[in-house]
């Protein structure tokens, strides 16, 4: 292979640098601008010109009950849906990986929730949760259960959002797990059978350990995306009832675009950004440790 003169790496610089420059401009500048806005009094509701008010927006955040309440909601909408997606996704992937006769349709079906616009997913479930129009409570009544009023009860509204998030994102998790499982060597399973392992033991002791890196990777991916949950909340509960399903980013949206308090909303976004960094920090360490890439 050393017989030819390789093209110098720097020849490729002009192919890569436009993307780097444009991405940097489009992402770093807005973040810096947000920092600036968060120290300003800018409000679209007031005709007064913006002025520098230091950390007063942040100071006000500490007393804002609605903001303080949105933090645990954000965490809830990360931890519970992602955990359920990973568990359910694993089970579904194991089932698909068994290649049961007559079950191939499941793999194709799972593509649908992945590509359906989140707004449509939200609307669909909004319909399903709506009394009379929807069917969730009808089907519950078939098995003798008295369905709650999903969208007007604070606790059930949280459950409703979690259900939609699990419905929408488990297929992605399952298909990613399946792709990984299909690359696991058959010999390991054969060896497990020779050693007298039952089916469930081979899942527990062969599949699960092999899946661990993928599990970590997908868990991280889903965690970050779960932090960005928006359209579903916007449509299904609109943050209600009484802000019970309002996440940090949702509250930032409401502050900025309903109450038009741009400076204040920017301060929320900055806090949100730090929440993101808290997740990204350890994440990057795990990713750097676990993943090598080669062609």
């Amino acid at each position: 292979m050393a017989s030819y003169e390789p093209i110098p790496q720097r020849a490729y610089l002009k192919y890569l640098s436009p993307s780097i420059v444009v991405l940097l401009l489009l992402t770093a500048l807005p973040v810096l601008f947000t920092l600036y806005l968060s120290t300003s009094s800018l409000s679209f509701a007031s005709p007064r010109p913006e002025r520098f008010i230091g950390l007063r927006n942040y100071d006000r955040l500490l007393d804002d009950i609605r903001f303080l309440q949105s933090i645990p909601v954000s965490l809830l909408f990360i931890v519970v849906p992602v955990a359920l997606q990973l568990i359910l996704g694993f089970i579904v992937a194991v089932i698909m990986n068994e290649r049961l006769p007559g079950m191939k349709w499941l793999r194709y079906l799972l593509v649908a929730p992945m590509v359906i616009p989140p707004i449509v997913t939200g609307l669909t479930w909004r319909v399903l949760f709506t009394p009379k129009l929807g069917s969730v409570n009808y089907f519950l009544s078939l098995v003798g259960l008295d369905g709650p009023s999903w969208l007007t009860d604070a606790n059930w509204a949280l459950v409703a959002i979690i259900i939609v998030a699990v419905w929408g994102w488990t297929p992605f998790v399952a298909l990613m797990f399946l792709a990984a499982m299909q690359s696991f060597p058959d010999e390991l399973y054969e060896a497990a059978v020779i050693d007298g392992a039952t089916w469930i033991q081979s899942v527990r002791h062969v599949t699960l350990p092999l899946l661990k890196p993928t599990l970590t990777f997908i868990g991280i991916l889903r965690t970050m995306e779960a932090l960005g949950i928006f359209p579903i909340i916007y449509i299904v509960t609109a943050g209600g009832p009484a802000a019970a399903t309002e996440t940090v980013n949702f509250y930032a949206f409401v502050s900025g675009f309903s109450y038009l308090k741009v400076g204040y909303a920017s301060a929320i976004i900055v806090v949100y950004f730090f929440m993101l960094l808290l997740i990204i920090g350890p994440t990057m360490r795990i990713l750097l440790r676990n993943f090598q890439v080669d062609s």
Partner: peptide, 11 residues
């Protein structure tokens, strides 16, 4: 993976 909300207000 960075949520779009980070960029929404400044844009």
């Amino acid at each position: 993976m960075v949520p779009g909300m980070i960029y929404l207000l400044p844009y």
